[in-house]
């Protein structure tokens, strides 16, 4: 028992006094929990939401971790965040402006495309990552409990980092094309919030579905491509025929991208009609998505 003697002195130094202190400090937080069969009433959902702030540290750590890891061991590093939308802009300008002569509301086409690509790239990158987020963390999901919505949420937050870099590039482009930034730019804060909320709604549903059916991940690139053509990214909203409008506007990305263009390129307040559509759809979708996600969460560890 020579060996254990040495260990014991070491263990003693990891004082039990400190342990007692930790426990005393924690008493405030500790409370009884009752674990019952999964239920889906609204009361349950609200109690889930109430407990979320307990995990704010985890959300923070994981989100920072995503940003840290994202460009590790890449030669260009964070430059990728700038290159992705810029290269798309160059390609779109070549194809849709020079070849197809797409109208661009009197704005240089590259800038016209970029103002839409900025929110769109945010949406598609975050959605792609978030959809796979549960499946890529099987190890955690089957071993540790935490609210699973944190996983897709961290990818949404991490994508905001790329988005912020993209905004800086946008500033540069606007300077280059001598388009003035007006006070209307503050209107973008609620619009970006709306974008994040809509993104989260879609990400919650798709990530939960992907945990059950891997088909989602396979179909997603195609879906995103279709979705981009169903949003005013390469063309202006004005070319969409009036008869289709009310259906077309049900896609919240329409209102969001249109608002970006209104505010940045025209220097006016966002057109309220598309924005209202986007807000209503998102306001209905997000709670529904959360409910769907929480229902799926119960059996997630067993089925993933």
């Amino acid at each position: 028992m020579l060996l254990s003697g040495e260990m014991a002195t070491r263990a003693e130094r990891l004082d039990t006094a400190g342990l007692e202190l930790d426990r005393a400090l924690r008493l405030r937080r500790s409370r009884g929990v009752v674990i019952r069969p999964a239920g889906y009433s609204w009361v349950n959902i609200i109690s889930h939401l109430r407990r979320l702030p307990d995990y704010s540290d985890l959300l923070y750590t994981l989100s920072v971790h995503r940003i840290n890891v994202r460009y590790r061991q890449t030669a260009l590093g964070v430059i990728w965040a700038i290159l992705q939308p810029l290269l798309m802009m160059v390609i779109f300008t070549g194809v849709f402006s020079i070849l197809a002569k797409m109208p661009s509301e009197g704005v240089p086409y590259p800038l016209f495309a970029y103002t839409a690509l900025l929110p769109w790239t945010f949406f598609s990158t975050a959605l792609t990552n978030a959809t796979g987020s549960l499946v890529s963390h099987v190890q955690l999901i089957t071993k540790v409990y935490f609210p699973r919505e944190i996983l897709p949420l961290t990818y949404v937050i991490a994508a905001l980092f790329d988005f912020a870099i993209g905004v800086v590039v946008l500033g540069g482009l606007m300077g280059w094309y001598q388009v003035a930034i007006t006070r209307q730019v503050w209107n973008l804060i609620p619009v970006v919030t709306l974008l994040a909320a809509w993104l989260l709604a879609v990400a919650l549903v798709l990530s939960a579905a992907q945990a059950r059916w891997r088909d989602i991940g396979v179909a997603l690139p195609l879906l995103l491509q279709l979705w981009m053509f169903a949003s005013p990214v390469i063309y202006p909203l004005s070319v969409v025929p009036e008869a289709w409008r009310s259906w077309y506007l049900l896609n919240p990305m329409v209102g969001i991208i249109a608002s970006f263009r209104d505010v940045l390129l025209q220097g006016v307040q966002p057109d309220p009609v598309p924005l209202r559509y986007a807000t209503i759809v998102t306001a209905l979708a997000l709670p529904a998505a959360y409910l769907i996600f929480k229902r799926a969460e119960a059996s997630m560890a067993d089925l993933i």
């Binding site: 674990i35 019952r36 069969p37 540790v144 409990y145 560890a301 067993d302």
Partner: peptide, 8 residues
């Protein structure tokens, strides 16, 4: 069940 990974 105790670690709430799966519900009863």
């Amino acid at each position: 069940l105790l670690s709430r990974i799966t519900p009863p």
